[in-house]
Simulated scan of single mutants.
Amino acid sequence: MNLPKFVLADNSQFPDDLFVIHLDYPRFIINLTNDEVEIFDDVDDEDQAELEAEMEALIQQAGEFYDAEMEDFE
């Protein structure tokens, strides 16, 4: 199965929050309301520096994905 890179999510327990889930490595969820990020994959110490640099770009892409999805609803 070919999965999308990002998906939108919400949750009734967090009615004021919007989430974007990144399904490729490194898998993570970002709460767009407060920019809190939770990474699901274990990361080796060796990969930590590379991951930090990549995460900045991925978080920006997650925001751009959300903006593009919202434009489709207008």
Rank of each mutant, 00 (worst) to 15 (best):
M1K: 08
M1W: 03
M1F: 09
M1L: 11
N2A: 08
N2K: 07
N2R: 04
N2Y: 05
N2V: 09
L3D: 01
L3K: 04
L3Q: 04
L3H: 02
P4A: 12
P4I: 11
P4N: 12
K5A: 11
K5W: 03
F6K: 01
F6L: 05
F6R: 01
V7F: 03
L8I: 12
A9D: 14
A9E: 14
D10I: 06
D10L: 05
S12P: 05
S12W: 04
Q13V: 12
F14P: 00
F14C: 03
F14V: 02
P15T: 01
P15S: 01
D16V: 05
D17T: 02
D17Q: 07
L18Q: 09
F19I: 07
V20D: 02
I21D: 04
I21F: 03
H22E: 04
H22R: 00
L23I: 06
D24E: 15
D24M: 08
D24A: 11
Y25I: 08
Y25H: 10
P26T: 13
P26R: 04
P26W: 03
R27C: 10
F28S: 06
I29T: 08
I30C: 04
N31I: 09
N31V: 12
N31G: 08
L32H: 02
L32C: 09
L32V: 06
T33K: 12
T33I: 05
N34C: 15
N34F: 08
N34W: 07
D35C: 06
E36M: 10
E36L: 13
E38P: 02
I39R: 05
F40V: 11
F40L: 15
D41P: 12
D42P: 01
D42F: 07
D42Y: 09
D44S: 14
D44P: 05
D44E: 14
D45C: 14
D47V: 06
Q48L: 15
Q48E: 14
Q48M: 13
A49G: 10
A49W: 05
A49Y: 05
E50K: 06
E50W: 03
E50C: 06
E50H: 04
L51T: 07
L51G: 07
E52T: 12
E52K: 10
E52L: 14
E52P: 02
E52R: 12
A53H: 07
A53R: 07
E54N: 13
E54W: 00
M55C: 06
M55T: 04
E56V: 15
E56S: 12
A57W: 00
A57N: 06
L58W: 00
L58P: 00
L58S: 02
L58Q: 01
I59S: 00
I59D: 00
I59E: 02
I59M: 02
Q60I: 09
Q61G: 01
Q61I: 00
Q61K: 05
A62F: 00
A62P: 00
G63F: 07
G63M: 13
G63W: 10
G63Q: 09
E64K: 06
E64P: 01
F65R: 01
F65I: 07
Y66E: 13
Y66H: 14
D67T: 15
D67I: 14
D67M: 12
A68C: 14
A68P: 09
A68N: 15
E69C: 14
E69K: 12
E69A: 15
M70R: 13
F73R: 08
F73C: 07
F73Y: 08
F73G: 05
E74F: 10
